[in-house]
């Protein structure tokens, strides 16, 4: 018997329509959750939660939360298709900006606490070390996306141009995973888990694209 699933799934029907106020509240919940990792670092630093090498902890943690936020951002569309909760899309901008926020913290941690603003060292790193090259590229590509994440600029660019620009997020996700794989210690498992998640999220999009035709 052929398995046939119709999206959106009916179990999610009850929460399909939310009022503006409810969506707004959901947005604040998302932002508050997104700030928890930062809060943990700020509170934990003086309390010794970050271990013997706190700078290494901050470097790793900001990187991890960048990629986790990116997973959340890219999960919203598939989740909307599965649940039929159209309002989810209105949380996507917040998720995307949280991603940029952690990416910026990650970048600043490197520039400041690892390289101590030594421009020569940084340029050498970007040229010589492939994992830094791709990580830096991912961060640079995120900047225009963050800048254009507001209604005024969407209007100015036009929806189609804006969408074309924001398709860069797929390139960024690939660069971010490659950055993680290349920097990780031997036999890394964690970056491949993210690679698999992104592959799944991409596949879901391709599936719906074909179905729509």
């Amino acid at each position: 018997m052929a398995l046939s699933v119709t999206f959106p799934l009916t179990v999610f029907a009850p929460w399909r329509s939310l009022t503006n106020a409810q969506v707004q509240r959901a947005k604040w919940v998302l932002v508050a959750l997104g700030m928890l990792p930062l809060a943990r670092m700020l509170i934990g630093l003086p309390l010794g939660w970050l271990g013997v090498n706190p700078i290494e902890f901050v470097t790793r943690s900001t990187g991890t939360w960048t990629i986790v936020s990116l997973v959340v951002t890219l999960s919203i569309t598939p989740l909307r298709n599965i649940t039929g909760w159209v309002w989810l899309v209105r949380l996507r901008r917040s998720a995307g900006l949280i991603t940029f926020f952690y990416a910026a913290l990650h970048f600043i941690t490197y520039v400041w606490l690892d390289r101590f603003f030594d421009v020569n060292d940084i340029i050498k790193d970007i040229i010589k070390r492939p994992f830094i090259t791709v990580g830096f590229a991912a961060f640079v590509l995120l900047i225009p996306l963050a800048i254009t994440s507001n209604n005024a600029l969407i209007k100015k660019l036009g929806a189609q141009n804006w969408q074309r620009l924001h398709n860069l997020v797929y390139v960024i996700a690939i660069l971010a995973v490659v950055h993680f794989i290349w920097l990780a210690r031997r036999n890394p498992i964690e970056p491949y888990i993210y690679a698999a998640i992104f592959a799944l999220l991409f596949a879901a999009r391709i599936y719906w694209r074909f179905k729509a035709k």
Partner: peptide, 16 residues
């Protein structure tokens, strides 16, 4: 292959 050995972080110190 992936990082410089020119500097090091002494645990407990802020700078390198």
């Amino acid at each position: 292959a992936r990082w410089s050995q020119a500097t090091e972080r002494r645990l407990g110190e802020f700078g390198k």
